[in-house]
């Protein structure tokens, strides 16, 4: 999500647009779950207490985030969730009388480590994270999830280049792109008639091909676009 767009959305939410709040929460849900899991060092679901705490922290981040403080929204969310989760653990341990000096020391160490991570996050990944979240949202409309893509990814370098070229060729035809975006279905027959591509190879890599096309259709996703450059020399971020 672009900064400008996010700023507008946050302003609308602060003015009382609950629908936008709902939409923003839904957009960042995978990130909230990931942050909570990362802090707790285990996979969590929405039925866990920690994820509820994360969700509450995110909601507070929406209310309290200020753009002029010089940090990204994603980093701010991470910071709030981390604080709340650590507080929750402290309360839990106090409640259970299990707090020990060692544990406190561990927590201090963990906080220090988290701060370092936070710094790395702020400098490297916030932009990429925004792109990933947007791509995930777009692909979900095509019933594509990231974990399915391994099976549809071409294994050989030549095939991979071929698929990248097919995606590049596809976006040259605006009517085909409209059909894909509008109907959410890949127009196999129209594409094969125009390009002479084999329907079998399209079907084999269909989900991967759609993903590449979606990324190529969004050149503003600079970091993700670097991964799908046609040719062997892919650029590392």
């Amino acid at each position: 999500m672009e900064n400008l767009k996010l700023k507008e959305i946050l302003l609308e939410i602060k003015n009382g647009n609950e629908l936008e709040r709902e939409r923003l929460i839904r957009h960042y849900k995978p990130y909230i779950l990931n942050v909570v899991g990362h802090i707790c060092k285990r996979h969590l679901t929405w039925s866990n207490d920690e994820t509820s705490i994360g969700l509450i922290a995110f909601n507070r981040a929406i209310n309290t985030f200020e753009f002029d403080k010089g940090r990204t929204f994603v980093n701010y969310v991470y910071l709030l969730i981390q604080r709340d989760i650590i507080d929750y653990f402290r309360k839990e341990k106090r409640h259970l009388h299990l707090v020990s000096d060692n544990n406190l020391f561990d927590h201090d160490k963990a906080e220090l480590k988290a701060s370092l991570e936070l710094y790395q996050q702020s400098t490297n990944t916030s932009e990429l994270l925004e792109e990933i979240l947007e791509l995930d949202e777009k692909l979900s409309k095509f019933n594509i999830s990231f974990e399915q893509l391994e099976r549809h990814s071409p294994k050989h370098r030549k095939t991979r280049i071929k698929v990248m070229e097919m995606a590049f060729e596809f976006i040259q035809h605006s009517d085909l792109v409209d059909e894909l975006v509008g109907k959410k279905v890949f127009p196999v027959s129209s594409f094969t008639k125009r390009t002479g591509a084999r329907p079998k190879s399209i079907e084999r890599h269909r989900k991967y091909l759609i993903t590449i096309i979606i990324i190529q259709l969004h050149p503003e996703w600079r970091r993700l676009s670097a991964f799908v450059q046609a040719g062997p020399g892919s650029v590392k971020i």
């Binding site: 995978p30 990130y31 285990r42 990933i132 974990e147």
Partner: peptide, 18 residues
């Protein structure tokens, strides 16, 4: 290289998105 790989999670290590 532009492909996707599913990597098994190791214990006590949940990587961050991005």
């Amino acid at each position: 290289d532009g492909t996707f790989r599913n990597i098994p999670l190791t214990k006590d290590n949940i990587p961050m998105m991005g």
